[in-house]
């Protein structure tokens, strides 16, 4: 396989900048992260408002049992795949009839997620000020569950709701240390590539439902 032009390019860069190999960088601008103080009720209100503004649905339930009942109603017999999130198991969602879960093999996951109409996940965090779900890929959360089915349902305990991006990056200064993939999801998949007409569900889920527990 061609090895490319590593030395050539680095040499050109250094020559142009007047730097030498191994020279430490100049001082970087300080990191700019500002975390506002927002109480939990206001966060929940903001999260719901933002998601709904993007045509997503939100529900707030008091208990895990309520979440399970709600999800059972949403699934309503449709082919469904659920992630391996311990939280979904805790809520009893993983054991709902007709919900496929516990998938550990890539090929099984592709087949199951491609065939499913509903994909159920939890989320590692949610960001209140933008209506965003933070999905960290792990044995518990596969990437395809929130991507291939046309409906994505996320069940999120309220304590995972952060104020916004700055709090997320304060908690996770280097997401790559723990995962090969962190995805921020803000609303359903969309396009406006034809005549600027908004169409949802162009490649990913066209509908997103977020259930806040607690």
């Amino acid at each position: 396989m061609p090895q490319g032009s590593r030395e050539n390019i680095l040499h050109r860069v250094r020559t142009a900048l007047g730097r030498s190999a191994g020279q430490p960088p100049s001082e970087a601008p300080p990191v700019r992260l500002r975390i506002p103080e927002v109480d939990m009720e206001a966060r929940i209100a903001s999260l719901r408002m933002r998601i709904e503004a993007l045509a997503g649905a939100t529900h707030r339930v008091a208990t895990a049992e309520d979440a399970r009942a709600l999800v059972a109603g949403i699934v309503a017999g449709r082919p469904t795949v659920a992630s391996n999130s311990p939280y979904l198991a805790e809520c009893g969602i993983a054991s709902l009839p007709g919900v496929r879960t516990g998938i550990r093999e890539t090929d099984d996951m592709r087949t199951a997620a491609a065939a499913a109409e509903v994909g159920i996940t939890s989320a590692d965090y949610a960001l209140a000020d933008t209506g965003t779900l933070v999905m960290i890929s792990s044995p518990a959360e596969a990437r395809l569950v929130s991507l291939l089915p046309i409906l994505h349902v996320a069940v999120v305990p309220r304590e995972r709701i952060l104020t916004g991006l700055d709090e997320l990056f304060t908690l996770l200064p280097k997401p790559a240390d723990q995962t090969s993939s962190m995805v921020l999801i803000t609303g359903p998949s969309r396009t406006a590539d034809i005549e600027q007409i908004l169409v949802r569900g162009v490649h990913g889920p066209g509908q997103i439902t977020v259930i806040i527990v607690g």
Partner: peptide, 28 residues
């Protein structure tokens, strides 16, 4: 770009999928 607060997806990808991860590429 489009007047959105955030685009729908922002992916941070680092390396192929790690041991235990269910999906993602094998080579990166």
């Amino acid at each position: 770009a489009t007047g959105q607060l955030l685009s729908v997806y922002a992916s941070f990808l680092s390396g192929p999928r790690r041991p235990g991860e269910v999906d993602g590429p094998e080579e990166f």
